[in-house]
Amino acid sequence: MEILAFGVQADERPLIEAAFAGHYDVRCVDVFLSEDTVPIAAGYRVISTSVNADLGPGVLRHLAAGGTRLIAQRSTGFNNIDLDVAHDLGLTVARVSSYSPYSVAEFAWTLAMALNRRVVRAAGRTRDFDFRLDGLMGRDLRGRTAGVLGTGRIGEAFTRIAHGFGMELLGWDTAENPACTALGMRYVAKDRLLADSDVITLHVPLVPSTHHLIGADELRAMKDDAILVNSSRGGLVDTGALVDELRRGRFTGVGLDVYEAEAGLFFLDKSLDVVEDDTLARLVTFPNVLVTSHQAYYTREAVGQIIAATVRNVEDFVAGRRSENTLVPLTGG
């Protein structure tokens, strides 16, 4: 059996090929699954997709008609998949339920630190041999407050780093994490966390109840000099409302590794194209905004774990087994 893997980055290809070697043949393509590219999947019983794949009703119907029976997504999030339609079509869907939480937590702190200490601006200046310090003053983190929205494995890892900095810790989640409370975290209401925190980070899944978790009201509740970081899912933040607040000169910095309209943009080279997304074009002009292309997970350790879990998902499907990664029940091997 040959597996078709969509949206494979150059760094990922040798890791995927090595992981599947001796198990199954795998064909890696760099294009992302969409209405335009779904014909490529015809005849493939198993496909693997990336987080920005279009797995809406139309694509799913094409896949089912072409003989696909398993979709193995190489990510934890699955908001891009219409699970109800997949179920009705008899498709099995699996994801990667967990991988290195340190990859995302460390990158979230990378964004926060770069914004706090104006690293991007400083690096740009020194390339022009401008070594002035004007406008580069940051703040000590020790004694300031970190607000963590979502205290699962990634939020806990972020909290441990914040604790190492000597920060006060505030958390918000549907359930308290004992490991975070042991570090001194106090769980408070969301509005309290937003009002009191100097660094705010998002580590919750994107589901209907968390869409625009940070909207106009939440943004107005934050300190004018707060740092906001989103390395989870773009739809957690109302980007239009964020631009409005940035235009008013608010926030020390905003770090976005994800963007709610990133599909069709992120992971692709658009440097020679006219980007028609006015909101994104406006975002990247603010000197206190740092946008990266959904790379927080992108470490050798995390990607290796994601690929290994994907191999296991294929093996489970062939053997007729279910696991914690199964999103839509198996319909047979």
Score class of each variant (00 low, 15 high):
residue 291 V to F: 14
residue 305 Q to A: 13
residue 279 T to V: 13
residue 295 Q to T: 08
residue 285 T to V: 06
residue 319 A to G: 15
residue 303 V to Y: 01
residue 253 G to Y: 13
residue 306 I to H: 06
residue 263 A to H: 11
residue 313 N to S: 06
residue 280 L to C: 04
residue 271 S to D: 04
residue 243 V to E: 01
residue 226 A to I: 04
residue 244 D to G: 02
residue 281 A to C: 08
residue 272 L to E: 15
residue 227 I to H: 01
residue 251 F to G: 02
residue 273 D to S: 14
residue 268 L to Y: 11
residue 265 L to P: 05
residue 311 V to C: 05
residue 303 V to E: 00
residue 245 E to M: 14
residue 245 E to Y: 08
residue 275 V to T: 14
residue 305 Q to I: 09
residue 284 V to N: 08
residue 248 R to L: 14
residue 303 V to F: 08
residue 252 T to I: 04
residue 311 V to K: 01
residue 300 R to Y: 09
residue 269 D to K: 10
residue 312 R to L: 13
residue 245 E to C: 12
residue 240 G to R: 06
residue 302 A to L: 05
residue 233 R to Q: 01
residue 295 Q to C: 11
residue 274 V to D: 15
residue 287 P to T: 10
residue 307 I to T: 00
residue 304 G to T: 02
residue 244 D to K: 02
residue 281 A to T: 12
residue 262 E to R: 03
residue 244 D to E: 02
residue 251 F to M: 01
residue 286 F to S: 00
residue 231 S to N: 10
residue 300 R to E: 14
residue 241 A to P: 05
residue 301 E to T: 13
residue 234 G to Y: 04
residue 278 D to R: 14
residue 275 V to P: 07
residue 307 I to C: 02
residue 242 L to F: 13
residue 296 A to S: 06
residue 284 V to S: 10
residue 302 A to Y: 04
residue 294 H to I: 12
residue 313 N to P: 15
residue 242 L to H: 13
residue 264 G to K: 06
residue 298 Y to Q: 14
residue 253 G to S: 12
residue 231 S to L: 07
residue 240 G to V: 07
residue 308 A to D: 09
residue 292 T to G: 07
residue 247 R to Y: 03
residue 238 D to E: 03
residue 250 R to T: 09
residue 276 E to Q: 12
residue 228 L to G: 10
residue 279 T to N: 06
residue 251 F to S: 00
residue 296 A to D: 00
residue 310 T to K: 03
residue 279 T to W: 06
